[in-house]
């Protein structure tokens, strides 16, 4: 497992490196002392796992994740940050408190260790980082049902959440796998695997029904494309 350590304090990186020595399966591919450096190294090294400090000058750990197209497994590290801790606890994100307790590190690594092969190996494991004010999520893209444009923001529907995330729908479209995500209309992108049913609209167009009960009306042109994809 290739790991990247991101922390602005040299001593903190050193200490984590020392703690990781007890875990030979983790190969430390590099260290970054700032957000910028982290972005460059993530691009270059494509790590499987990030140990990410939150409070860094210039660019916080969250800012780093905001700029990633696709996020690896992340274990946040922080000395103390009430807001971040709340966000982590609510959304079951992995975090370690500094000074890091060796058994906590072991437990966190256990959780992110590569799982045994799945029944459908082709299922995408890609995940993205979403942040809405103080709340944040790391979401597997295949678990997103629907994205809805609201000007410069996009409402993202997944699980039972629908936070409003900064970024245009077009920007999200560029980040998502086009074989799974379908541009249904000017305002909507939907996950083809999440279509619960379809209805016929007044003009012979399709209305797609999603697991959360949302209905998305397609233009006639998009309707015929979708019919083709779903072969109905």
């Amino acid at each position: 497992m290739k790991a990247l350590i991101v922390d602005d304090e040299r001593m903190a990186r050193q200490e984590l490196r020392r703690l990781l020595a007890a875990h030979p399966e983790v190969e430390i591919a590099g260290e970054a002392a700032s957000g910028e450096e982290a972005l460059a190294l993530i691009q270059k090294l494509a790590p499987d796992i990030l140990f990410l400090d939150i409070q860094m000058p210039g660019m916080t750990g969250f800012d780093v994740l905001d700029r990633l197209r696709e996020v690896p497994e992340v274990i946040f590290t922080t000395a103390y940050d009430q807001h971040a801790l709340k966000a982590f606890e609510v959304n079951a994100l992995d975090y370690l408190l500094k000074p890091i307790a060796p058994n906590r590190l072991a437990a966190a690594l256990q959780k992110v260790r590569p799982q045994p092969p799945r029944q459908s190996p082709r299922q995408s494991m890609e995940q993205i980082f979403l942040r809405d004010g103080e709340r944040c999520w790391i979401v597997k893209t295949r678990e997103i049902d629907l994205l809805e444009s609201e000007g410069n923001y996009t409402r993202v529907f997944f699980h039972n959440e629908h936070p409003l995330i900064s970024g245009s729908l077009a920007a999200f479209e560029a980040r998502l796998d086009p074989s799974i995500f379908f541009r249904a209309s000017r305002r909507h992108i939907l996950n083809l695997n999440c279509i619960k049913g379809t209805e016929l609209g007044p003009a012979g167009n399709l209305i797609v029904i999603l697991p959360g009960g949302q209905q998305v009306e397609l233009s006639r042109r998009q309707s015929s494309i979708l019919r083709e994809i779903l072969s109905i």
Binding site: E9, A12, E15, Q55, A79, Y80, L97, K98, P99, I100
Partner: peptide, 8 residues
């Protein structure tokens, strides 16, 4: 924040 960073 200071205390825990310091201890670290």
């Amino acid at each position: 924040h200071f205390l825990f960073n310091c201890l670290n």
